[in-house]
Simulated assay, not measured.
Amino acid sequence: MIHVERGGSGPLLVLLHGLGATAEVWRGVTPHWPGSWLAVDLPGHGRSTPLERYSFGSFAAAVAAVVPPGPVAVLGHSLGGAVALALASGWFAVEVAAVAGVGVKLRWSADELARARAVAGRPAKVFPTPDEAAGWAARLAGVPLAHGVAETPGGWRAALDPAAFGVGAPDVAGLLAASRAPVLLATGETDPLCPPGDLLAATPGGMVLAGVGHNAHVEQPESIRPVLERLVTEWDASRHPVGC
C-alpha cells in the first residue's frame, strides 16, 4: 500500500521525497505549483508498506501504480530524484512531460556504499517512547517529520525500513540518457551530498539554488520556485510543440 496526499486542480505534479522522509516535506512547495499535485510516501517510508527488495525500479513501479493516466510533471528530492528519472524513462507506463531532481547524490565512494549496505542489514532501532523514535527518524531523514515513527510490540521505531538503505547508487548517466522527457537537475548551493561542482560536471545545464543545502524544499520552500517554473515551461512546450 502506498500512502498518497493530493491537492489542487490542473496539470499534475508528482512529488517524491528523499530517503527517510515522507510526503509531508513538500507542504511548503505545493502552494507554488499552478496545478494539482500528488505526493507519496515511498515504499518502506512513513505510512507506506515496505518492499521485499529495494531498487530504483521497484520504487518507480510502486509510484507508477498510483499515478493517474495522462501527462504529469515529476519532481523528486535525492532518492526521489533518481526515482523520478526512472519514471521519465517510460519503462513504467507513466507519461512524464517534464522531470526534475533536486539534491541527487552523483558521486558515491566504495566506503559510502558499504556503510549503506551495513545499515540495510541491521534491524530497526526500537525506542521506549515515540519522542525518542521521532528524534531518530528526524536524524535519518535530515528533517523533522510528523509521520516518521511506527509503533511495534516492543516500543517505537522510525517508520523507515532500514533495508531501503540497500538501494545503492543510481546510474544517473544512464537514467539521463533513457529519459523521454526534458530533465532538470538542481542542487543547493551548500549541499554536501550533491555539491554544485559535481552537478555542473554531470549536467552543465544544472541549476544551483542559492542559500540552501540538501533539503532546500524544507529549509526554504521558496527556493524551489525556479525549478517549478522550469517544469511549467517544459510542460507547456510538450503540450504545444513549436509548429503545431
Results as ranks from 00 to 15, higher is better:
Ala100Ile: 04
Val99Met: 00
Leu199Cys: 10
Val99Ser: 03
Val102Pro: 04
Gly205Gln: 03
Ala146Arg: 14
Glu112Gly: 06
Ala116Thr: 00
Trp136Ala: 15
Leu175Cys: 06
Pro71Arg: 15
Leu175Asn: 01
Gly80Pro: 11
Glu95Met: 01
Val143Leu: 08
Thr203Arg: 15
Asp161Met: 10
Asp111Ser: 09
Ala163Val: 08
Ala84Val: 05
Ala202Tyr: 10
Ala141Met: 11
His77Phe: 12
Leu85Glu: 13
Gly148Ile: 08
Pro196Asp: 13
Gly211Phe: 06
Phe127Tyr: 15
Ala178Glu: 09
Glu189Phe: 07
Asp198Val: 02
Ala116Gln: 06
Val99Phe: 01
Asp198Trp: 08
Ala118Ile: 01
Lys105Ile: 07
Ala210Phe: 03
Thr190Met: 10
Val94Gly: 03
Pro128Trp: 02
Thr129Tyr: 06
Thr152His: 08
Thr129Asp: 05
Ala169Val: 09
Pro182Ile: 01
Val167Glu: 11
Leu200Pro: 13
Asp191Val: 07
Gly166Glu: 06
Arg117Ala: 15
Ala118Asp: 12
Leu75Asp: 03
Leu176Trp: 04
Gly197Tyr: 04
Gly142Asn: 01
Val104Gln: 00
Ala186Trp: 11
Asp131Lys: 05
Val126Ala: 03
Pro170Cys: 02
Gly148Asp: 11
Pro144Thr: 13
Leu193Ile: 05
Gly211Asp: 10
Thr190Tyr: 15
Ala202His: 15
Pro195Phe: 14
Ala146Gly: 15
Pro162Gly: 05
Gly206Ile: 06
Val72Ser: 02
Val167Cys: 09
Val126Gly: 01
Cys194Asn: 14
Glu132Lys: 00
Arg122Leu: 14
Ala164Glu: 09
Glu95Val: 00
Ala82Glu: 02
Ala210Val: 14
Val149Tyr: 05
Gly154Trp: 01
Ala159Gly: 12
Pro123Lys: 11
Lys125Phe: 10
Glu112Asn: 00
Leu85Ile: 14
Pro162Cys: 10
Val126Asn: 02
Gly121Asp: 10
Arg180Leu: 13
Gly174Ser: 12
Pro162Trp: 06
Leu185Asp: 01
Ala177Asp: 13
Thr190Leu: 07
Trp136Ser: 13
Ala158Glu: 09
Thr190Trp: 14
Asp171Val: 04
Thr187Asp: 11
Trp108Ala: 05
Ala86Asn: 05
Ala173Ser: 14
Ala93Tyr: 08
Leu113Cys: 07
Pro192Lys: 13
Pro162Asn: 06
Val119Gly: 00
Ala158Ser: 15
Pro195Gly: 02
Ala124Pro: 04
Ala116Lys: 01
Gly211Lys: 07
Ala169Arg: 04
Phe92Trp: 11
Cys194Arg: 03
Ala118Lys: 07
Ser89Asp: 06
Leu209Ile: 07
Ala118Asn: 02
Leu199Arg: 07
Val167Thr: 12
